[in-house]
Protein backbone atom coordinates (compact mmCIF):
# COMPACT_ATOMS: atom_id res chain seq x y z
CA UNK A 1 0.00 0.00 0.00
CA UNK A 2 1.02 3.58 -0.51
CA UNK A 3 2.31 5.63 2.36
CA UNK A 4 0.07 8.72 2.52
CA UNK A 5 2.79 10.99 3.87
CA UNK A 6 5.00 10.11 0.93
CA UNK A 7 2.22 10.82 -1.58
CA UNK A 8 1.55 14.24 -0.03
CA UNK A 9 5.25 15.08 0.07
CA UNK A 10 5.69 13.99 -3.52
CA UNK A 11 2.66 16.04 -4.63
CA UNK A 12 4.01 19.12 -2.82
CA UNK A 13 7.24 18.67 -4.74
CA UNK A 14 5.26 19.25 -7.93
CA UNK A 15 4.64 22.88 -6.94
CA UNK A 16 8.21 24.18 -7.44
CA UNK A 17 8.40 22.05 -10.57
CA UNK A 18 5.32 23.68 -12.07
CA UNK A 19 6.46 27.16 -11.03
CA UNK A 20 9.80 26.49 -12.70
CA UNK A 21 8.09 25.26 -15.86
CA UNK A 22 5.91 28.38 -15.97
CA UNK A 23 8.85 30.73 -15.42
CA UNK A 24 10.98 29.04 -18.06
CA UNK A 25 8.27 29.00 -20.71
CA UNK A 26 7.47 32.63 -19.91
CA UNK A 27 11.09 33.73 -20.11
CA UNK A 28 11.89 31.77 -23.27
CA UNK A 29 9.69 33.91 -25.47
CA UNK A 30 10.92 37.09 -23.76
CA UNK A 31 14.47 36.14 -24.72
CA UNK A 32 13.62 37.08 -28.29
CA UNK A 33 15.43 40.07 -29.64
CA UNK A 34 12.71 42.73 -29.83
CA UNK A 35 9.23 41.58 -28.93
CA UNK A 36 7.22 38.63 -30.20
CA UNK A 37 4.89 40.89 -32.09
CA UNK A 38 7.37 42.62 -34.35
CA UNK A 39 9.19 39.31 -34.75
CA UNK A 40 5.96 38.04 -36.24
CA UNK A 41 4.97 41.05 -38.30
CA UNK A 42 8.37 42.23 -39.52
CA UNK A 43 8.41 45.59 -41.31
CA UNK A 44 4.82 45.45 -42.46
CA UNK A 45 3.33 47.36 -39.52
CA UNK A 46 3.73 50.90 -38.20
CA UNK A 47 4.94 51.70 -34.69
CA UNK A 48 1.46 52.87 -33.72
CA UNK A 49 -0.04 49.55 -34.76
CA UNK A 50 2.59 47.69 -32.75
CA UNK A 51 1.90 49.85 -29.68
CA UNK A 52 -1.83 49.26 -30.00
CA UNK A 53 -1.47 45.51 -30.37
CA UNK A 54 1.01 45.41 -27.49
CA UNK A 55 -1.46 47.16 -25.23
CA UNK A 56 -4.10 44.66 -26.30
CA UNK A 57 -1.84 41.71 -25.40
CA UNK A 58 -0.63 43.35 -22.19
CA UNK A 59 2.95 43.56 -23.47
CA UNK A 60 3.22 47.18 -22.25
CA UNK A 61 2.71 46.05 -18.64
CA UNK A 62 5.60 45.50 -16.18
CA UNK A 63 7.21 42.05 -16.39
CA UNK A 64 5.71 40.80 -13.16
CA UNK A 65 2.20 41.77 -14.25
CA UNK A 66 2.83 40.08 -17.58
CA UNK A 67 3.91 36.93 -15.79
CA UNK A 68 0.75 36.81 -13.71
CA UNK A 69 -1.34 37.41 -16.83
CA UNK A 70 0.52 34.54 -18.48
CA UNK A 71 -0.11 32.23 -15.52
CA UNK A 72 -3.77 33.24 -15.48
CA UNK A 73 -4.12 32.42 -19.16
CA UNK A 74 -2.34 29.10 -18.84
CA UNK A 75 -4.46 28.07 -15.86
CA UNK A 76 -7.63 28.89 -17.79
CA UNK A 77 -6.37 26.71 -20.63
CA UNK A 78 -5.48 29.57 -22.96
CA UNK A 79 -2.09 29.01 -24.59
CA UNK A 80 -2.57 31.71 -27.22
CA UNK A 81 -3.10 31.39 -30.92
CA UNK A 82 -0.72 30.10 -33.58
CA UNK A 83 0.71 32.87 -35.74
CA UNK A 84 0.86 30.57 -38.74
CA UNK A 85 -2.35 28.54 -38.84
CA UNK A 86 -4.43 30.92 -36.66
CA UNK A 87 -6.03 28.31 -34.42
CA UNK A 88 -5.71 28.07 -30.62
CA UNK A 89 -2.41 26.49 -29.60
CA UNK A 90 -3.98 23.93 -27.26
CA UNK A 91 -6.19 22.63 -30.08
CA UNK A 92 -3.19 22.37 -32.40
CA UNK A 93 -1.24 20.46 -29.77
CA UNK A 94 -4.29 18.24 -29.08
CA UNK A 95 -4.45 17.30 -32.75
CA UNK A 96 -0.77 16.40 -32.92
CA UNK A 97 -0.43 14.68 -29.54
CA UNK A 98 -1.82 11.17 -30.35
CA UNK A 99 0.98 10.07 -32.74
CA UNK A 100 3.61 11.16 -30.23
CA UNK A 101 1.88 9.39 -27.35
CA UNK A 102 1.50 6.16 -29.33
CA UNK A 103 5.12 6.44 -30.45
CA UNK A 104 6.35 6.95 -26.88
CA UNK A 105 4.20 4.12 -25.52
CA UNK A 106 5.29 1.71 -28.25
CA UNK A 107 8.97 2.55 -27.73
CA UNK A 108 8.64 2.01 -23.99
CA UNK A 109 7.03 -1.41 -24.52
CA UNK A 110 9.54 -2.39 -27.20
CA UNK A 111 12.41 -1.20 -25.02
CA UNK A 112 11.21 -3.35 -22.10
CA UNK A 113 10.62 -6.37 -24.37
CA UNK A 114 14.17 -6.08 -25.69
CA UNK A 115 15.88 -5.27 -22.40
CA UNK A 116 14.37 -7.79 -19.96
CA UNK A 117 15.32 -11.08 -21.68
CA UNK A 118 18.75 -9.79 -22.69
CA UNK A 119 19.42 -8.52 -19.18
CA UNK A 120 18.66 -12.01 -17.88
CA UNK A 121 20.99 -13.66 -20.39
CA UNK A 122 23.75 -11.15 -19.59
CA UNK A 123 23.33 -11.49 -15.82
CA UNK A 124 23.15 -15.30 -15.81
CA UNK A 125 26.15 -15.65 -18.14
CA UNK A 126 28.04 -12.90 -16.42
CA UNK A 127 31.49 -12.11 -17.80
CA UNK A 128 31.13 -14.71 -20.55
CA UNK A 129 31.09 -14.10 -24.29
CA UNK A 130 27.31 -13.62 -24.56
CA UNK A 131 27.35 -11.09 -21.71
CA UNK A 132 30.17 -9.14 -23.33
CA UNK A 133 28.45 -9.26 -26.73
CA UNK A 134 25.14 -7.96 -25.36
CA UNK A 135 26.77 -5.20 -23.36
CA UNK A 136 29.06 -4.24 -26.24
CA UNK A 137 26.17 -4.04 -28.71
CA UNK A 138 24.16 -1.81 -26.40
CA UNK A 139 27.17 0.38 -25.73
CA UNK A 140 27.45 0.98 -29.48
CA UNK A 141 23.68 1.63 -29.60
CA UNK A 142 24.02 4.21 -26.84
CA UNK A 143 26.78 6.00 -28.74
CA UNK A 144 24.60 6.33 -31.85
CA UNK A 145 22.53 9.44 -32.40
CA UNK A 146 18.79 8.75 -32.65
CA UNK A 147 18.48 10.27 -36.12
CA UNK A 148 21.29 8.05 -37.39
CA UNK A 149 19.65 4.85 -36.14
CA UNK A 150 16.39 6.04 -37.71
CA UNK A 151 18.02 6.83 -41.02
CA UNK A 152 19.70 3.41 -41.21
CA UNK A 153 16.52 1.51 -40.28
CA UNK A 154 14.52 3.59 -42.75
CA UNK A 155 16.94 2.86 -45.57
CA UNK A 156 17.28 -0.86 -44.88
CA UNK A 157 13.72 -1.86 -43.96
CA UNK A 158 11.62 0.71 -45.82
CA UNK A 159 13.56 1.82 -48.88
CA UNK A 160 15.46 -1.41 -49.66
CA UNK A 161 13.42 -4.31 -48.25
CA UNK A 162 10.08 -2.42 -48.43
CA UNK A 163 8.80 -4.14 -45.28
CA UNK A 164 7.62 -0.88 -43.74
CA UNK A 165 6.27 2.43 -45.06
CA UNK A 166 8.77 5.24 -45.63
CA UNK A 167 6.95 7.62 -43.30
CA UNK A 168 3.62 8.97 -42.19
CA UNK A 169 1.18 7.77 -39.59
CA UNK A 170 -1.63 5.74 -41.24
CA UNK A 171 -5.39 5.84 -40.69
CA UNK A 172 -6.54 3.04 -38.37
CA UNK A 173 -5.01 1.91 -35.08
CA UNK A 174 -3.44 -1.18 -36.67
CA UNK A 175 -2.09 1.06 -39.40
CA UNK A 176 -0.64 3.44 -36.78
CA UNK A 177 1.18 0.58 -35.09
CA UNK A 178 2.52 -0.59 -38.46
CA UNK A 179 3.66 2.90 -39.44
CA UNK A 180 5.18 3.64 -36.05
CA UNK A 181 7.05 0.34 -35.65
CA UNK A 182 10.40 1.47 -37.08
CA UNK A 183 10.29 4.88 -35.34
CA UNK A 184 9.51 3.11 -32.05
CA UNK A 185 12.37 0.69 -32.59
CA UNK A 186 14.65 3.67 -33.23
CA UNK A 187 13.71 5.24 -29.93
CA UNK A 188 13.67 1.92 -28.09
CA UNK A 189 17.39 1.31 -28.68
CA UNK A 190 18.61 3.87 -26.16
CA UNK A 191 15.86 3.03 -23.66
CA UNK A 192 16.67 -0.68 -23.92
CA UNK A 193 20.37 0.04 -23.45
CA UNK A 194 19.88 2.04 -20.25
CA UNK A 195 17.29 -0.41 -18.93
CA UNK A 196 19.38 -3.48 -19.79
CA UNK A 197 22.43 -2.16 -17.99
CA UNK A 198 20.46 -1.29 -14.89
CA UNK A 199 18.49 -4.55 -14.84
CA UNK A 200 21.63 -6.65 -15.32
CA UNK A 201 23.24 -5.11 -12.24
CA UNK A 202 20.00 -5.45 -10.29
CA UNK A 203 19.59 -9.11 -11.26
CA UNK A 204 23.16 -9.89 -10.26
CA UNK A 205 22.53 -8.23 -6.88
CA UNK A 206 19.25 -10.05 -6.35
CA UNK A 207 20.77 -13.43 -7.31
CA UNK A 208 23.14 -13.04 -4.37
CA UNK A 209 20.32 -12.25 -1.94
CA UNK A 210 19.49 -14.69 0.83
CA UNK A 211 15.84 -15.03 -0.11
CA UNK A 212 16.89 -16.42 -3.49
CA UNK A 213 19.09 -19.00 -1.76
CA UNK A 214 16.15 -19.83 0.43
CA UNK A 215 13.84 -20.24 -2.56
CA UNK A 216 16.41 -22.61 -4.09
CA UNK A 217 16.69 -24.51 -0.84
CA UNK A 218 12.92 -24.90 -0.80
CA UNK A 219 13.33 -26.70 -4.13
CA UNK A 220 11.37 -24.23 -6.23
CA UNK A 221 11.74 -24.60 -9.97
CA UNK A 222 14.39 -22.27 -11.42
CA UNK A 223 11.78 -20.68 -13.70
CA UNK A 224 9.56 -19.83 -10.75
CA UNK A 225 12.51 -18.39 -8.82
CA UNK A 226 13.50 -16.29 -11.80
CA UNK A 227 10.09 -14.80 -12.41
CA UNK A 228 8.60 -14.56 -8.94
CA UNK A 229 11.67 -13.65 -6.94
CA UNK A 230 14.44 -12.35 -9.14
CA UNK A 231 12.62 -10.47 -11.90
CA UNK A 232 10.08 -8.90 -9.58
CA UNK A 233 12.67 -7.47 -7.22
CA UNK A 234 15.09 -6.48 -9.95
CA UNK A 235 12.36 -4.58 -11.80
CA UNK A 236 11.71 -2.23 -8.89
CA UNK A 237 14.89 -0.25 -9.39
CA UNK A 238 14.17 -0.06 -13.10
CA UNK A 239 10.74 1.50 -12.56
CA UNK A 240 12.46 4.53 -11.03
CA UNK A 241 14.61 4.70 -14.12
CA UNK A 242 11.59 4.71 -16.45
CA UNK A 243 10.58 8.27 -15.48
CA UNK A 244 13.75 10.00 -16.64
CA UNK A 245 14.13 7.76 -19.69
CA UNK A 246 10.57 8.33 -20.88
CA UNK A 247 11.30 12.06 -20.53
CA UNK A 248 14.32 11.58 -22.77
CA UNK A 249 12.14 9.52 -25.10
CA UNK A 250 9.69 12.39 -25.54
CA UNK A 251 12.64 14.62 -26.42
CA UNK A 252 13.92 11.98 -28.81
CA UNK A 253 10.47 11.92 -30.43
CA UNK A 254 11.16 15.42 -31.73
CA UNK A 255 14.04 14.02 -33.77
CA UNK A 256 12.45 10.70 -34.72
CA UNK A 257 9.29 12.39 -35.98
CA UNK A 258 11.42 14.55 -38.24
CA UNK A 259 13.27 11.55 -39.67
CA UNK A 260 10.10 9.50 -40.30
CA UNK A 261 7.78 12.43 -41.19
CA UNK A 262 5.28 11.63 -38.41
CA UNK A 263 2.70 14.38 -37.76
CA UNK A 264 3.25 14.46 -33.97
CA UNK A 265 4.11 17.25 -31.54
CA UNK A 266 7.85 16.80 -32.13
CA UNK A 267 7.42 17.52 -35.79
CA UNK A 268 5.15 20.44 -34.84
CA UNK A 269 7.95 21.79 -32.66
CA UNK A 270 10.47 21.77 -35.51
CA UNK A 271 7.94 23.24 -37.98
CA UNK A 272 7.11 26.00 -35.48
CA UNK A 273 10.77 26.81 -35.07
CA UNK A 274 11.25 27.14 -38.82
CA UNK A 275 8.03 29.20 -39.03
CA UNK A 276 8.94 31.35 -35.99
CA UNK A 277 5.57 30.42 -34.50
CA UNK A 278 6.44 31.46 -30.92
CA UNK A 279 3.10 30.82 -29.19
CA UNK A 280 3.24 27.22 -30.41
CA UNK A 281 6.87 26.79 -29.27
CA UNK A 282 5.90 28.17 -25.88
CA UNK A 283 2.78 26.05 -25.58
CA UNK A 284 4.61 22.90 -26.63
CA UNK A 285 7.49 23.44 -24.21
CA UNK A 286 4.97 23.97 -21.44
CA UNK A 287 2.81 20.94 -22.21
CA UNK A 288 5.72 18.56 -22.80
CA UNK A 289 7.30 19.65 -19.52
CA UNK A 290 4.02 19.07 -17.69
CA UNK A 291 3.58 15.64 -19.30
CA UNK A 292 7.11 14.61 -18.34
CA UNK A 293 6.76 15.80 -14.76
CA UNK A 294 3.51 13.82 -14.49
CA UNK A 295 5.31 10.71 -15.81
CA UNK A 296 7.98 11.26 -13.13
CA UNK A 297 5.26 11.52 -10.51
CA UNK A 298 3.58 8.34 -11.74
CA UNK A 299 6.80 6.29 -11.79
CA UNK A 300 7.75 7.53 -8.31
CA UNK A 301 4.35 6.54 -6.93
CA UNK A 302 4.45 3.15 -8.67
CA UNK A 303 7.90 2.51 -7.25
CA UNK A 304 6.75 3.46 -3.77
CA UNK A 305 3.79 1.13 -4.10
CA UNK A 306 6.07 -1.75 -5.18
CA UNK A 307 8.74 -1.08 -2.58
CA UNK A 308 7.57 0.51 0.68
CA UNK A 309 11.18 1.30 1.63
CA UNK A 310 11.27 4.00 -1.06
CA UNK A 311 8.61 6.00 0.75
CA UNK A 312 10.54 6.08 4.02
Amino acid sequence: MLNLGFVVRRLLQMIPTFVFILVVTFVIVRLLPGDPLSAQAGDRVTDAQVAHAQAELGLDQPMLVQFFLFVKHVLSGDLGRSYVVQIPVWRLIGQRLPPTLILTAMSTILGILIAVPLAFVAALRRDRVSDAAIRGTFQVGLSMPVFYIGLVLLTVFSAQLRWFPVGGYGDSMADHVYHLFLPSLTLAVSLAAVLMRNLRTAIIDVLNAEYVDFARAKGLMPRVIMIRHVLRNALISSVALLGPTIGTLLGGAVITESVFAIPGVGRLMIDSIYGRDYPVIQGLTLSLAVVVSLIFLATDLIQAALDPRVAQ
Binding site: V19, T248, T285, A289
Partner: peptide
Protein backbone atom coordinates in the same frame (compact mmCIF):
# COMPACT_ATOMS: atom_id res chain seq x y z
CA UNK B 1 17.14 20.64 -3.62
CA UNK B 2 14.07 22.44 -4.93
CA UNK B 3 15.94 23.68 -8.01
CA UNK B 4 17.14 20.16 -8.74
CA UNK B 5 13.62 18.75 -8.41
CA UNK B 6 12.28 21.35 -10.78
CA UNK B 7 15.00 21.14 -13.41
CA UNK B 8 15.33 17.36 -13.51
CA UNK B 9 11.73 16.85 -14.56
CA UNK B 10 12.15 19.22 -17.47
CA UNK B 11 12.65 17.35 -20.75
CA UNK B 12 16.21 18.41 -21.48
CA UNK B 13 16.14 18.11 -25.27
CA UNK B 14 12.86 20.01 -25.55
CA UNK B 15 14.27 22.81 -23.42
CA UNK B 16 17.49 23.00 -25.43
CA UNK B 17 15.56 23.00 -28.71
CA UNK B 18 13.21 25.70 -27.40
CA UNK B 19 16.10 27.90 -26.28
CA UNK B 20 17.95 27.44 -29.57
CA UNK B 21 14.69 28.12 -31.40
CA UNK B 22 14.36 31.45 -29.68
CA UNK B 23 18.02 32.52 -29.66
Amino acid sequence: GRVVDAVITFPFLVLVIAIVAVL
